[in-house]
């Protein structure tokens, strides 16, 4: 679906944000791009919908070189939801906000209506349909922003720091939602440094640092590697920290989620007693 070949990118200010990055993301994959602030995560995903074009190298979306396409053309397939919802909300009602993208992409009025309704239901926003997005709480505004992108059903959904400023219940809701999107066949890409969140959804993890990809593999393998984690200013998941200390009792070291930890410990306790 997305293919990045030896891409380097330098901002006009001279910041060298990507250094010969190559990565392939297939249709239906669930990927978390992680790394410290300023590692180049956002710069990388902006290449996916053409907001930025590579300085060197090429990016292909569905076999098409992003250099040949506009942001609008690419965004139809690759939906990018930014971290701060306030950077995009501007309409008088939530409904209009969701319809904005649909209108830009030239869907018919009939389809528009149907999709708006679908997106409102999907994110549990029906009751706010006629309300100004500025009247909503932070968490709700984030959901409106998400709905406004999901409405045109992009095949790839990129969420930039979706958990920042969210409380635990909002995070749990988001977790369920993201999983659901992925099981429905969407390619989901998370850009985040929230390691506990990633530990619970177990995606493929791409670790970035100083403009390079330093590791790529299943979450279980990457998030339990102390060297890599330290290099990228992350912290080992709490559960992993626990299992590192339990290694001499015969526990495996590569445990990241509560669910798995629970099973292992329950078994252990049952065997001992």
């Amino acid at each position: 679906m997305i293919k990045v070949e030896n891409v380097s990118f330098t901002y006009p200010s001279g910041v060298n944000a990507l250094k010969s990055v190559s990565i392939e993301i297939s249709d239906g994959e669930f990927v978390a791009i992680m790394g410290e602030n300023g590692a180049g995560k956002t710069t990388l995903v902006k290449q996916f919908n053409g907001l930025l074009k590579p300085g060197e190298g090429d990016v292909y979306v569905d076999g098409r070189n992003t250099r040949d396409l506009s942001v609008a053309e690419l965004s139809k397939d690759v939906g990018l939801v930014f971290q701060n919802a306030d950077h995009q909300l501007f309409c008088e009602t939530v409904e209009d906000e969701i319809a904005f993208g649909l209108r830009n992409f030239g869907f018919s009025n009939r389809v528009n209506k149907k999709r708006v309704k679908w997106a409102l239901t999907l994110l549990d926003l029906q009751e706010y349909r006629k309300i100004s997005p500025f009247m909503l709480s932070g968490g709700e505004r984030k959901r409106v922003a998400l709905a406004s992108v999901l409405a045109w059903k992009p095949r790839v959904i990129i969420l930039d720091e979706p958990t920042v400023g969210q409380d635990q219940s909002q995070k749990e809701r988001l977790l369920q939602f993201v999983r659901q999107l992925n099981t429905q066949g969407n390619t989901v890409i998370l850009v985040t440094h929230d390691i506990e969140f990633v530990a619970e959804c177990d995606p493929r993890v791409v670790l970035m640092s100083h403009g390079r990809i330093v590791a790529d593999g299943p979450a279980k393998k990457i998030l339990t590697n102390p060297k890599l984690i330290k290099k990228t200013s992350l912290i080992l998941p709490q559960i992993t920290q626990l299992f590192f200390k339990l290694a001499d009792l015969g526990f495996p070291k590569d445990v990241i989620s509560i669910c798995e930890a629970k099973k292992l410990i329950n078994d252990f306790v049952a065997r001992r007693s």
């Binding site: 942001v71 609008a72 965004s75 939906g79 930014f82 950077h87 995009q88 904005f100 830009n104």
Partner: peptide, 16 residues
Amino acid sequence: NEAQMIIDAQKSRGLE
């Protein structure tokens, strides 16, 4: 910087 982020967000929603 903020203006640029807003432009990026709206372009990503198909604004030309």
